[in-house]
Computed example of a mutant assay.
Amino acid sequence: MKFITKAIALTAFAALAACGGNKAAENVEAAAENTADTLEMQAENYSEAADNAVGATENTLENQAEALENKADAVREAGENAADAIEANSQ
């Protein structure tokens, strides 16, 4: 949740500072994409660790990887929505 909160705060700040129109929207979307990519890399690390684990540890690692992938999707969506809002407000 902290990543999502930070991403939403970042996009809200960028929306307020969006004097440049589409460039600001692109920056917001790129920042969200970078955050989501980082989350997916962390998820991949958990998945790889799960491959080397057994039992409850394996399940826990797989669940953590899935949660990170879900957060990455949410961050991407928030970034896209914020970029759309910036573009709409700049027209």
Rank of each mutant, 00 (worst) to 15 (best):
N34L: 09
A18H: 00
N70K: 01
A72D: 00
G20I: 05
T60H: 00
A14D: 14
K23M: 11
E33Y: 06
G79E: 08
E44M: 15
E77T: 15
T38A: 04
K71C: 13
A36C: 05
V75D: 06
R76D: 05
E66G: 04
V28G: 02
N52V: 06
G55K: 02
D84W: 10
A49Y: 02
D37A: 15
A43T: 04
N81C: 02
A65Y: 07
E66A: 15
A12D: 07
A25V: 05
A78C: 07
A56F: 07
L61F: 07
A67S: 14
A36P: 09
Q42S: 15
A24I: 09
K6S: 06
E87Q: 12
A65D: 12
L39T: 13
E58C: 13
A32P: 03
Q64R: 06
D84I: 10
E87T: 14
A72N: 12
A43N: 11
A36L: 13
N45A: 15
A56P: 01
I4L: 15
A15N: 11
K71R: 11
A88Q: 14
D84A: 09
G20S: 09
I8N: 06
A17C: 08
S90E: 14
A67T: 12
A67W: 11
A56M: 04
A12M: 07
N27Q: 15
Y46C: 00
A88M: 14
A12H: 06
A15S: 14
A30H: 10
D73T: 09
E77R: 09
N45S: 15
N81V: 02
F13T: 11
L39I: 11
T57N: 04
C19Q: 08
L68A: 03
A74W: 00
E48S: 12
A17G: 10
Y46A: 04
E62C: 12
A49C: 03
E29T: 08
I86P: 07
V54L: 12
L61S: 07
Q64K: 15
G79C: 03
T5G: 10
N52W: 12
E69M: 10
E26Q: 12
K71H: 11
L68K: 11
Q91K: 14
A15D: 00
A72R: 07
T35M: 09
A30V: 07
N22E: 11
N63R: 03
E80H: 00
R76H: 05
A78M: 03
T5I: 05
T38N: 00
T35Y: 05
M1N: 08
L39H: 05
A25P: 00
E48W: 09
N89T: 10
N27A: 13
E66L: 13
L10Y: 03
E80C: 10
A17S: 06
T57E: 15
N70T: 05
T35P: 00
G21F: 01
N81I: 03
E58S: 15
A83H: 01
S90G: 02
E66K: 14
